[in-house]
Simulated scan of single mutants.
Amino acid sequence: MIATDHATQLRRGVVEACILGLLARESMYGWQLAERLIADGAIIGSIGTLYPVLSRLRERGLVTSYEVASESGPPRRYYELTTAGAAALHRFRDDWTSFAASVTQIIAPEETP
Results as ranks from 00 to 15, higher is better:
residue 111 E to Q: 15
residue 30 G to Q: 12
residue 101 A to W: 04
residue 109 P to D: 13
residue 31 W to C: 11
residue 38 I to G: 01
residue 52 P to L: 11
residue 45 G to T: 07
residue 76 R to T: 04
residue 78 Y to I: 07
residue 58 R to P: 04
residue 27 S to F: 01
residue 99 F to A: 12
residue 69 A to P: 10
residue 49 T to Q: 13
residue 82 T to P: 02
residue 94 D to Y: 13
residue 56 R to E: 15
residue 29 Y to I: 06
residue 88 A to E: 14
residue 70 S to V: 01
residue 39 A to R: 14
residue 51 Y to G: 08
residue 69 A to R: 12
residue 34 A to Y: 10
residue 40 D to L: 07
residue 59 E to Y: 10
residue 28 M to A: 00
residue 105 Q to P: 11
residue 73 G to F: 09
residue 36 R to P: 05
residue 69 A to E: 14
residue 61 G to M: 05
residue 46 S to I: 03
residue 102 S to L: 10
residue 106 I to Q: 12
residue 65 S to H: 07
residue 37 L to T: 03
residue 91 R to K: 14
residue 78 Y to L: 10
residue 60 R to E: 13
residue 65 S to W: 07
residue 68 V to G: 04
residue 37 L to R: 02
residue 59 E to H: 11
residue 103 V to L: 09
residue 74 P to Q: 15
residue 28 M to K: 08
residue 92 F to D: 03
residue 89 L to Y: 01
residue 103 V to I: 07
residue 37 L to K: 01
residue 40 D to M: 04
residue 57 L to N: 06
residue 68 V to P: 00
residue 52 P to T: 08
residue 73 G to K: 03
residue 36 R to Y: 05
residue 87 A to W: 05
residue 72 S to A: 14
residue 26 E to W: 15
residue 102 S to Q: 13
residue 86 A to M: 08
residue 49 T to H: 08
residue 102 S to M: 08
residue 55 S to G: 12
residue 37 L to P: 03
residue 71 E to K: 11
residue 77 R to Q: 13
residue 77 R to D: 08
residue 104 T to C: 10
residue 85 G to V: 02
residue 75 P to A: 01
residue 26 E to M: 09
residue 45 G to S: 15
residue 61 G to Y: 06
residue 40 D to Y: 06
residue 29 Y to C: 03
residue 76 R to P: 02
residue 78 Y to N: 06
residue 58 R to H: 12
residue 90 H to A: 15
residue 71 E to G: 12
residue 96 W to Y: 12
residue 56 R to T: 05
residue 42 A to W: 08
residue 101 A to Q: 11
residue 107 I to T: 07
residue 65 S to L: 02
residue 54 L to I: 01
residue 82 T to H: 00
residue 42 A to N: 15
residue 32 Q to Y: 01
residue 83 T to Q: 15
residue 102 S to T: 06
residue 34 A to T: 06
residue 100 A to T: 04
residue 100 A to G: 04
residue 67 E to C: 06
residue 56 R to D: 14
residue 27 S to V: 08
residue 91 R to E: 13
residue 108 A to E: 13
residue 36 R to K: 10
residue 75 P to S: 04
residue 101 A to P: 06
residue 81 L to W: 01
residue 101 A to I: 10
residue 78 Y to D: 05
residue 101 A to Y: 07
residue 50 L to C: 00
residue 92 F to Q: 05
residue 47 I to N: 08
residue 58 R to I: 06
residue 62 L to T: 03
residue 101 A to K: 12
residue 81 L to R: 00
residue 107 I to R: 07
residue 42 A to D: 15
residue 105 Q to S: 13
residue 30 G to R: 05
residue 50 L to S: 05
residue 103 V to S: 14
residue 70 S to P: 09
residue 67 E to T: 15
residue 87 A to Q: 11
residue 37 L to F: 02
residue 95 D to P: 04
residue 40 D to I: 01
residue 79 Y to M: 09
residue 94 D to E: 14
residue 100 A to E: 03
residue 35 E to P: 02
residue 35 E to F: 13
residue 83 T to K: 09
residue 71 E to V: 07
residue 79 Y to H: 04
residue 75 P to F: 00
residue 42 A to K: 14
residue 40 D to R: 03
residue 40 D to C: 04
residue 31 W to T: 15
residue 47 I to T: 05
